[in-house]
Amino acid sequence: MRPAEPTTVVDCSGVGPGGITRVLTEITRHWPSGRLRLVAVPSGWDPPAGSAADVDVVSRQAGDRARTVAAATNALRKVTARAKAGLVTVLSLSPSVAVVGSRLPVTTVVHDLAFRLWPHGLPTAVRQYRRASYGTAIKRSRRLLCVSARTRHDLLGLYGVPEHRTVVWHPGSDLHVAPGGPQAQVRAATAGRPYLVVAGHAAHKGVELAVEALPDIPGHVLAVLTSGQRIERFEAAVAASPAADRVLLLDQLSDDDYAATIAGAAAFLMPSHFEGYGLPAAEALRLGTPTVISPDPALHEATDGRAVRMTTWTASAVVRAVTEATGAPRPPVGATGRSWREATLHLADLLAADNGHDLQTPATRSITRQV
């Protein structure tokens, strides 16, 4: 009789635009073996080709958050109802109320606590849901996988989660760059001029600091990665800037265009007010692009101390850091971070260990940074 195939059920109901979508894509691409059953994936997302695992999309996000969570809760209840512990593992890629539907223990990835530490501009309904989802995840999860030591520290400080219930799991940061260079929109707008790239899909990314600094960085175009999420305060800053003609707001890019745009930049900027990790900065450095980060500790951790760090959250600090970054030799490709294959194998190993983990015993596994 053929032995049962190990199965990992992945709750994706908390996955939205940005780095969490990349986590979903890359762990699906690199999952080592067995079966992946994906619950509540984003509506426009499709599994990447080439996965060694047997990938099954159980359901997709549909409609508003309430309907997505309700459907995900029901789907988790169904796929875990007859599952046997030890053969089936449940992973939630972000805190979600939907995990109440799981009949098996859950391991949850926690990316940040921005709704507590940087709530500026968040609608009341969003803050309320995140309070509920984080509270549920903390209560129901067997283990919480934190994408940085900073997030692990925040869980302890804000929720009193003891360290034996948490472990640090850094995402991968390798990107494939297709031949041909940056996309046509970037080439046309820059007209051969050097350009800077800044992450700008959320209000805490500090794009207004980069825009304020641009008049003192002559000759450069500033390309803002919006991921299709236009932020009103950023657009207002651009409109008021004397260098507005040198700002390019980019909509959602394909993975190839995203990587090529960053790889071709004079520098990548992440002057964020808050980060739980800062995956784009790690990706930029791994591509060999000089990288500027804010004083945020998670960004320093994500870039392994190899980025140029702003001394304050000011436009003048951006100017000084960009001058330093662009005046130095470009970092070697692959100088920091680890591959998604390495990160995925580490994640699978943690889940396998959690399947029989005793929560009274402090966790001994920790990340090994591989270059």
Rank of each mutant, 00 (worst) to 15 (best):
H204A: 05
T314P: 11
H111C: 14
V57Y: 14
T190E: 05
T323E: 10
V39M: 06
D56E: 15
R67I: 08
T326H: 05
A263D: 12
Q370E: 11
G264T: 04
S51L: 01
L156I: 04
E208R: 13
T303K: 00
S94D: 13
V97P: 01
G228P: 09
L214N: 10
A71V: 13
I27H: 02
Q128C: 11
R365N: 07
R29N: 04
S227M: 09
V168F: 00
G14E: 14
S173P: 03
P48E: 01
E283R: 05
R165A: 03
A325Q: 13
A199E: 12
P47K: 10
L196R: 05
I20T: 13
V333N: 07
W169G: 01
V322E: 04
S92R: 08
T344Y: 00
S339Q: 06
W169E: 02
R127M: 11
G278Y: 00
Q252T: 09
I367W: 01
Q360T: 14
L253Q: 13
V88C: 15
R320C: 03
R187S: 15
R365I: 07
H176R: 08
E26H: 14
V109R: 09
A184V: 14
V10M: 04
P119I: 04
A202K: 12
R35I: 12
A98V: 03
R230I: 11
L248R: 15
G50N: 09
E283H: 04
T326G: 04
V99W: 05
A328C: 02
G50K: 07
V58Y: 10
W45Y: 04
T344G: 14
H153V: 04
H220G: 14
E232H: 04
V167H: 04
Q370S: 05
P332D: 13
G121C: 10
H170I: 00
